[in-house]
Design a protein around this nucleic acid. Structure first.
Lengths: 219, 219
DNA sequence: GAAATAGTGTCTCTTAGACATTATCTT
DNA sequence: AAGATAATGTCTAAGAGACACTATTTC
């Protein structure tokens, strides 16, 4: 009924490094496009994978050794021209991690590349990244999504800077802090204080029950 | 590589009838679930379909005879338990039409059912409809999407009532009309006036270049 | 005390919301 | 004129934005 239908998952894994939005690329082992940098991806294993999300988790782990606390289906890219092997469907996902998750890459299994300075990518992976960046930006304006780019504990200044990076626009400190209690997605951690060269800052965390909180208004 | 991977498209076709949000269901011809009411859906034809969107158009036309001016990919539902034939992926889509498009159903190829009073549906079609309703409601709050439930020409009162139905909340007439010029997605049609028993109303149309306009703020 | 960052307060201007008013048609 | 719907105007209160100010640390 479906003679040659290729079904894969691809993952756009974002992180914020050096105040720049970057994504993880892996070097392809096999043809087509062997040796080329591309999004981590692979076939669905009908026997092992409960669903596409589980397949994405498995593929991400096997290709990069990484596990992401936030992983969401993005869009399914389809057609007869995107893959030289034939008509294909790629169920694309995107994920967010804090930079510290990436330093355990002893075997150098992946590269980190700025999303604004991508190399030429095989298949329609450039379009997939573009779609993921748009989704991340759009959704971040009115949700708690950017928290997943931060470490478990963070200061309000770090939180604001993260939103500013993703949204690409400066935010007023006073306005930002006034809204936080209403949006109600972060909470102060008692006795957790960030010490530095200057006045110490209260540390906050994402409320576990608000991992993806959607707001009526923008942050 | 993918021994038995079933790939289909399913379509949630919405319309507004009698001030109620309804969806189109068809009676299945073959097993599994032959004779049962279900979402219109079918296999992807790798030879004929340029991509999944084209497949959804073709399937909708072949099962119901309908063509929708607005059709968008929703989400891909996957897994080994949703279809008794094996591991499957359904690339679900949703579409919006005005009620008048549906009256040409001489052969009675489909049923119209309120989304709040669905019969028991096969597969995970109930979840697909629920997902589509949520997407429609969420997206309608800050976009021109609901216009596609209206005829080509409509009054501002009809437009407001459509938004109220989808959003499930009353809107203030004065506020609604004040925002329209800013949101800039409808335009008055010169010399087009709706006559009735009372004061005539100016007719408007969706601006062709704003078929899916996204707003910074809610309508 | 200077420098730097954390955190709060105040003013203004925009705008949503509620509601009143005017306008134009039919019977 | 009455009744109904279309369309616009007005007042108020909430909130975003801009910016000043205070607080707490290190050197």
């Amino acid at each position: 009924m479906n003679p040659t239908l290729i079904v894969t998952v691809d993952i756009v894994l974002f992180t914020l490094s050096g105040m720049r939005l970057k994504t993880v690329l892996t070097r392809r082992e096999r043809d087509p496009f062997a040796k080329r940098l591309a999004l981590p991806g692979g076939y669905i294993h009908a026997d092992d994978d409960h669903d596409a999300l589980a397949a994405a988790e498995r593929v991400l782990r096997s290709k990069t050794g990484l596990v992401s606390p936030y992983l969401e289906q993005l869009y399914t890219f389809t057609g007869g021209v995107r893959d030289p092997r034939g008509w294909s469907a790629s169920i694309a996902h995107y994920a967010l991690v804090h930079e510290s998750v990436l330093i355990s890459d002893a075997e150098h299994r992946f590269e980190l590349v700025e999303v604004d300075a991508l190399p030429e990518l095989p298949f329609d992976h450039a379009a997939i990244v573009a779609h993921a960046v748009k989704r991340l930006r759009d959704k971040s304006a009115y949700s708690s999504l950017p928290c997943h780019l931060l470490p478990p504990l963070f200061t309000l200044t770090e939180l604001q800077q993260t939103y500013e990076q993703i949204l690409g626009t400066p935010l007023d400190k006073s306005v930002f802090r006034r809204k936080l209690p209403e949006l109600d997605f972060v909470e102060a951690v008692p006795d957790a204080i960030r010490q530095g060269k200057h006045r110490p800052a209260q540390l906050y965390r994402l409320r576990p029950d608000r991992r993806l909180a959607l707001f009526d208004k923008a942050v």
